[in-house]
Design a binder for these strands. Structure first.
Lengths: 199, 199
DNA sequence: CGAGAACTTGAGCAGCATCAAAGAGAGTGG
DNA sequence: CCACTCTCTTTGATGCTGCTCAAGTTCTCG
């Protein structure tokens, strides 16, 4: 994990790579609580909170830098939007783990990854980079890597998924069981992503 | 659900009763994403966000009021602490759903409920009120009500649990698999709870 | 080419779901 | 005070989903 600039106590910005907030159980079980993708902000609260229920780990090579101060023009709303988005992702993760089958979880999660990477300008219209191993995916989705593997094969057989060479192509079925809210406001989030990733 | 005072657009404070943030699937599946207990604050962002992935529902008779403005002395930190706590609860819920068995989920969730109600001054040292039905619990823990029922019976047999007349008594085993962070800062949260619930 | 990590496959089992129906309470109205 | 009804809880039988264990096979990279 590369930190650009000296390590200042304060929020960090993910420039490249994927990180995860991870919880380890004392018996070895592992849960990836959420992912941090390029353009995401790591609030220092997450890292240094008195109650620290999670650790942040790099899931592949990653580049971070100190996040620019919120005082800059228009960045305050961008931070707020980013925090709101984070919470939405946590809620979606809960619904996924609580009420979806393995097949649905993977579909939904890949879908979310695609959306988020698109906002960060890191995805094509139909495909996107996937640096995770099947085991990491399993740890995020509450499954075993063996079952993730078998489910991925089923998705390939169904023509829903291609996953080769660290890139995923996902064919949307369009029949999501989950009613999504209105589409994201076009302004705030890309503003942050672009403003920050450009710098 | 009773609203004390006229309905103003703005954050609400739970004075009494339990609410839940609920996600409904189009095929009837239901997931309770999180609970709102006495002393908790409902940020209007949750209700009126452009991307509204969840709805807030009263799970039993409840009393709400507009939350006092953050400008009041010392209330700003209390709100921040409350928001941080909310996130901790979401993360804990994810770990629960992802990596715990039905037995462990119920144990851990009851444990959390006890802690939270204690902070709000609504629990005894060993027991606390439980207004939920087994089906609501199932919808929160990603199980069926039938399985919740059988698991509760197992817990009773093991002498871990008593649940009669809307009150729960939980005998802690002390062997939580999950490493918890340092204990909560004694100041901020009870400050909010008490400052707000007193008024 | 060798070694480690990641992926794949198989067999068997357990946890939890599903379906269906029968008790328990709790409130309501006659 | 007793049906009546509604919701909640409990029980049984059966089967699928996903786990476990164990052994390959392929990929990556030095």
């Amino acid at each position: 994990m590369i930190l650009a600039g000296q390590r200042t106590p304060g929020p960090l910005l993910v420039l490249d790579g994927w990180l995860g907030r991870v919880q380890l159980f004392s018996d070895g079980r592992r849960q990836i609580l959420s992912f941090l993708l390029p353009g995401d902000v790591i609030q220092d609260a997450h890292t240094f909170q008195p109650v620290a229920p999670s650790t942040i780990t790099a899931l592949c090579d990653a580049v971070l830098c100190p996040a620019p101060p919120a005082e800059e023009e228009g960045l305050r709303e961008a931070y707020a939007a980013s925090a709101a988005l984070d919470e939405i992702h946590l809620l979606r993760q809960i619904a996924r783990l609580g009420r979806m089958s393995a097949y649905e979880r993977i579909q939904d999660w890949l879908s979310e990854a695609h959306e988020r990477l698109s906002l960060a300008g890191r995805a094509g219209p139909e495909s996107f980079p996937m640096p995770l191993t099947q085991e990491m995916l399993a740890d995020a989705l509450g499954l075993t890597s063996v079952h993730v593997n078998r489910t991925l094969q089923a998705m390939r057989r169904d023509g829903v998924l291609e996953w080769r060479g660290g890139a995923v192509r996902l064919r949307q079925t369009g029949t999501s069981m989950v009613p999504r809210g209105r589409p994201l406001p076009e302004s705030a989030i890309p503003a942050l992503r672009k403003a920050l990733l450009a710098g």
